Amino acid sequence: MTVLPKDIPGDSLKVTVGTANGKPGDTVTVPVTFADVAKMKNVGTCNFYLGYDASLLEVVSVDAGPIVKNAAVNFSSSASNGTISFLFLDNTITDELITADGVFANIKFKLKSVTAKTTTPVTFKDGGAFGDGTMSKIASVTKTNGSVTIDP
């Protein structure tokens, strides 16, 4: 049996954390987006972790974005102690894959008090994996961190 590389060099799934701005007490939304989904033969499963400074940001909610089908079954998240974990699994293993680019999740943060303008990162942590529509590992994932700026 011969195994051929399935990824064209330079191609990767792009996962990007967005940015937001606000004043202390505001609730802002930071999107997590996927790009080049079709090039990577869709997404059938993924789990990953984001870190944030809990002294500056309070997670209000984490909701599935419009590219997630049947989110009540296929999407899960949790947030505590400065870490947000995400889990997606197409429970049907074929019919509810992520097949389009767009917003995977929206994180709502309540901004805490600061004395001066502060930009705090929302960054990928170690761990996690992504699988394509056949549940094979997506070897190349380009992750881009985001941030939230609090301006009193």
Rank of each mutant, 00 (worst) to 15 (best):
Lys6Ala: 10
Gly82Cys: 15
Ile67Arg: 13
Asn106Val: 06
Ile84Val: 07
Val68Arg: 02
Leu50Asn: 09
Gly146Arg: 04
Val148Glu: 04
Asn70Cys: 14
Ala35Glu: 09
Leu111Tyr: 03
Thr134Met: 05
Leu56Glu: 14
Val114Phe: 05
Tyr52Arg: 08
Pro31Glu: 10
Val141Met: 10
Thr120Ile: 11
Lys108Ala: 05
Asp63His: 13
Val37Tyr: 05
Thr118Ala: 07
Gly131Asn: 00
Cys46Val: 00
Lys125Val: 01
Asp151Glu: 15
Ala64Met: 04
Val60Gly: 08
Val73Ser: 05
Lys23Asp: 12
Leu97His: 14
Gly146His: 05
Asp7Asn: 12
Thr83Leu: 04
Glu96His: 00
Thr115Leu: 05
Lys112Ala: 03
Thr120Phe: 02
Leu50Gln: 08
Thr33Arg: 11
Leu87Val: 01
Phe88Val: 01
Val30Asn: 09
Ala105Met: 00
Tyr52Pro: 03
Ala116Gln: 05
Lys23Ser: 11
Phe104Thr: 03
Asp132Glu: 04
Thr19Cys: 11
Thr33Phe: 09
Ser140Ile: 15
Thr29Phe: 10
Pro121Ser: 08
Ala71His: 11
Gly128His: 03
Val148Ile: 05
Gly127Phe: 00
Leu4Arg: 11
Tyr49Pro: 00
Lys143His: 01
Val32Ser: 10
Asn42Arg: 12
Thr115Val: 07
Val103Trp: 07
Lys23Phe: 09
Thr27Met: 13
Val17Arg: 00
Ile107Trp: 00
Pro5Gly: 08
Val43Asn: 00
Ser147Phe: 06
Ala116Gly: 06
Pro9Leu: 11
Lys14Arg: 11
Met40Ser: 10
Val73Tyr: 05
Ala20Cys: 13
Val30Thr: 10
Gly128Met: 00
Thr92Lys: 05
Val28Ser: 10
Asp26Pro: 10
Lys41Arg: 11
Lys125Cys: 02
Gly146Tyr: 06
Phe88Thr: 00
Leu89Glu: 00
Ile84Gly: 01
Val62Pro: 08
Tyr49Thr: 01
Ala116Arg: 09
Ala35Lys: 13
Asn81Phe: 15
Val114Met: 09
Ile138Asn: 02
Pro5Glu: 06
Phe75Met: 07
Asn21Trp: 12
Val15Gly: 09
Val62Tyr: 08
Asp132Val: 03
Ala79Tyr: 15
Gly18Met: 12
Gly22Tyr: 08
Lys39Gln: 09
Asn145Cys: 03
Leu87Cys: 00
Leu57Gln: 13
Ser147Asp: 06
Ala116Met: 05
Thr94Val: 15
Ala35Leu: 09
Asn47Ser: 02
Leu111Thr: 05
Leu97Ala: 15
Asn74Leu: 00
Thr119Gly: 05
Glu58Ile: 14
Asn81His: 15
Asp95Gln: 03
Pro5Ile: 07
Ala129Trp: 02
Gly127Ser: 03
Asn21Leu: 11
Leu56His: 13
Asn91Cys: 15
Thr134Leu: 04
Lys117Asn: 06
Met135Pro: 00
Gly128Asp: 02
Asn42Ser: 12
Asn91Gln: 05
Thr144Pro: 06
Thr118His: 06
Thr33Asp: 12
Gly127Tyr: 00
Ser78Thr: 06
Pro24Phe: 10
Asn145Arg: 08
Thr144Ala: 06
Ser55Tyr: 12
Glu96Cys: 00
Ser140Leu: 08
Glu96Ala: 07
Asn21Pro: 14
Thr123Asp: 06
Leu13Val: 14
Phe104Cys: 02
Pro9Trp: 10
Ala72Arg: 14
Cys46Asn: 08
Glu96Phe: 02
Ala100Met: 03
Tyr52Lys: 03
Asp11Thr: 11
Asp26Ile: 13
Thr83Asn: 15
Asp53Thr: 11
Asp95Tyr: 06
Ile107Cys: 01
Lys108Asp: 00
Ile150Lys: 08
Lys110Leu: 02
Lys23Pro: 10
Tyr52Ala: 08
Ala35Asp: 06
Asp26Gln: 11
Asn145Gly: 10
Lys143Thr: 02
Ser12Pro: 11
Ala72Leu: 13
Thr142Lys: 09
Val30Ala: 10
Ala54Ser: 11
Ile8Leu: 12
Val28Gln: 08
Val114Asp: 07
Thr27Trp: 14
Ile98Tyr: 00
Asn70Glu: 08
Lys112Ser: 03
Met135Glu: 02
Gly18Gln: 11
Thr99Lys: 14
Lys112Cys: 00
Asp95Cys: 02
Thr27Tyr: 11
Thr19Gly: 14
Gly131Phe: 00
Thr115Phe: 07
Lys41Asp: 13
Val103Lys: 03
Val28Arg: 10
Leu111Gly: 02
Val68Gln: 11
Phe86Val: 04
Val141Arg: 03
Leu111Ile: 06
Met135Leu: 03
Val15His: 06
Tyr52Ile: 08
Pro9Met: 13
Ser76Val: 04
Ala20Asn: 13
Lys143Tyr: 01
Phe124Trp: 14
Leu89Met: 02
Asp90Ser: 00
Pro5Lys: 05
Asp101Met: 01
Tyr49Asn: 01
Lys108Leu: 04
Ala72Lys: 13
Ala64Cys: 14
Gly146Ser: 04
Ala72Ser: 13
Lys110Val: 05
Lys117Pro: 04
Phe34Ala: 06
Pro152Gln: 14
Val15Glu: 07
Ala139Glu: 02
Leu89Gln: 00
Ser12Ile: 12
Asp53Val: 12
Glu58Val: 13
Gly51Gln: 11
Val62Arg: 07
Thr27Glu: 11
Asp63Phe: 07
Asn74Val: 01
Ser78Phe: 15
Ala64Arg: 06
Gly10Gln: 10
Leu4Phe: 13
Ser80Ile: 15
Ser80Glu: 01
Leu111Gln: 06
Val28Tyr: 05
Asn47Thr: 01
Leu13Arg: 08
Val32Asp: 02
Gly22Ile: 08
Ala71Lys: 12
Asn145Val: 05
Thr92Arg: 02
Gly18Ala: 12
Asp90Ile: 01
Phe130Asp: 00
Phe130Met: 04
Phe104Glu: 04
Ser61Cys: 07
Val17Tyr: 07
Thr27Val: 10
Asp36His: 11
Asp126Gly: 15
Ile84Glu: 14
Ala79Met: 15
Lys117Gln: 05
Asp132Ile: 01
Val73Met: 06
Asp7Tyr: 11
Lys6Leu: 13
Asp95Glu: 05
Ile138Asp: 00
Ala139Phe: 14
Lys143Glu: 04
Asp11Pro: 11
Val122Tyr: 02
Pro24Ala: 10
Lys117Leu: 04
Ser136Pro: 01
Ala129Thr: 02
Lys39Gly: 13
Ser113Thr: 06
Lys41Thr: 12
Val28Gly: 09
Asp7His: 13
Val59Thr: 08
Met40Asn: 15
Ser78Trp: 15
Ser76Thr: 02
Ala139His: 15
Ser80Met: 15
Asn47Leu: 01
Asn145Asp: 05
Ala116Tyr: 04
Gly51Ser: 10
Val73Ala: 05
Pro66Gly: 14
Thr123Gln: 06
Leu87Asn: 01
Lys125Ser: 02
Val3Glu: 14
Val30Leu: 13
Thr45His: 00
Asp26Thr: 12
Gly146Met: 04
Val43Phe: 07
Ala100Thr: 08
Lys14Pro: 11
Thr119Met: 12
Ile67Pro: 13
Asp151Gln: 14
Asp26Phe: 09
Gly51Ala: 10
Asn70Ala: 08
